[in-house]
Amino acid sequence: MSSNTDRKSQEHTNETSNQDTASLPQRPNSGARSYPTVSIFGLPFSKMDMQETVNYLSDVIHLRVPTQVITGNPIMVMAGLEDPDYYRVMEEAELIVPDGAGVVWASGYVGQPVKERVAGFDLMHRLLETGEKHRWSVFLLGTTQETIEESAERLKQLYPLIRFVGARNGFFGPGEDAEVIEEIRRANPDMLFVARALNNQEPWIGRYKHELGVPVMMGVGGSFDIIAGKLKRAPVLFQKLRLEWFYRLLQQPSRYKRMLVLPKFMLKVVREKENVTKRRPTP
């Protein structure tokens, strides 16, 4: 009797343990994602909401699993469909969050809605808030030296318990990659936020993520410009109406060519609705 009871108790313990670990990040090269996704033209966008995403990345940091986070939007999806190398970088990223309102719309249109938009700017701040409790360390990389230093100072004021272990501008070429990687490795941060141009932000992280070995590596686009006060973020009303892209266009009219991709993306989703969620072979 005692033996049966002990066996049942052990089985219950094993089941509980399996349930607890099922949602944890997979080890590198596991080939599996332990969170729900929706495929948008073959690219696996996370269905997790903001809090679930923060929890997931907290586990990533705890386990020290190198993880590339892409804050995906329609412009990036379309860029990937036109450039096989860029597509491969996105497909192989450990986590793509639905940053763009167009991605949120597309997931709902094809009947597999994400829970909510997970904006990269907000995700970065939520991770920093969480990081204060654990004394996480951060390295900032990208934009101009003036902007990155101003961003670092402002973030230190907002999150005094975060350890900022490095800040470097993003104006370096392939010949300096090894030097930058070594600087980041020496700093050994828990999180690396990168702000570079679209064509080398995600590809650079993807190319060197295993050499860098940082648990959370995330491209943050123009976030440092907003933090440093160079640009203003869209008012809440624009965010709720999913018009943040339009507000940014008003501030930077030179971006209009990039914005023309948005209607092309929507038209492509409508025309290819039955095939949007089907997995595509890597180009």
Rank of each mutant, 00 (worst) to 15 (best):
V60F: 03
H125K: 14
L267M: 13
A119D: 10
N55R: 05
K133C: 01
A32S: 09
G120P: 13
V110W: 02
Y109G: 00
V236S: 06
I96P: 00
A178E: 15
Y86A: 02
N73R: 05
S30I: 00
L250H: 01
M76G: 04
T277W: 00
H210K: 09
F238D: 03
F121W: 08
Q239V: 04
L95G: 00
G173K: 06
K273D: 04
G206Q: 07
E11D: 14
T5A: 14
D85L: 14
E211R: 12
R88D: 11
G222T: 05
Q201L: 08
A22H: 10
E92N: 13
V54C: 00
H125L: 15
T130S: 09
S2Q: 13
L57F: 06
K273M: 02
G213P: 12
E116N: 03
P84Y: 04
K133A: 12
T13D: 12
M259S: 09
P253D: 11
H134F: 12
A79T: 15
V77I: 15
F121T: 04
L57Q: 02
V60T: 13
W136Y: 12
R117W: 07
S9H: 12
E202V: 08
F139W: 07
G221F: 06
R242H: 15
E149N: 10
P283T: 07
S23G: 08
G100Y: 04
E149G: 00
I75H: 10
P281V: 03
H134L: 13
K257I: 07
S137M: 07
E129Y: 05
M1I: 05
S9K: 15
R126D: 14
D122W: 08
S151T: 15
W105M: 04
K47Y: 01
V269G: 02
A197T: 12
G111C: 07
E202A: 11
I61K: 02
E94N: 03
G166L: 06
I227F: 04
Q10S: 10
Y35G: 01
F121S: 07
S151E: 05
W204V: 06
G142E: 05
R207E: 14
N55Q: 10
V104P: 01
T282P: 01
L155H: 06
E182T: 11
Q157D: 14
L192M: 08
N29H: 13
N275P: 00
D225N: 11
F171E: 04
M259R: 08
S9L: 15
I227M: 05
E176Y: 03
Q68G: 07
V165N: 02
E183Y: 06
R7A: 11
S46T: 15
E274Q: 13
N55S: 11
L24C: 04
E179P: 02
A32I: 11
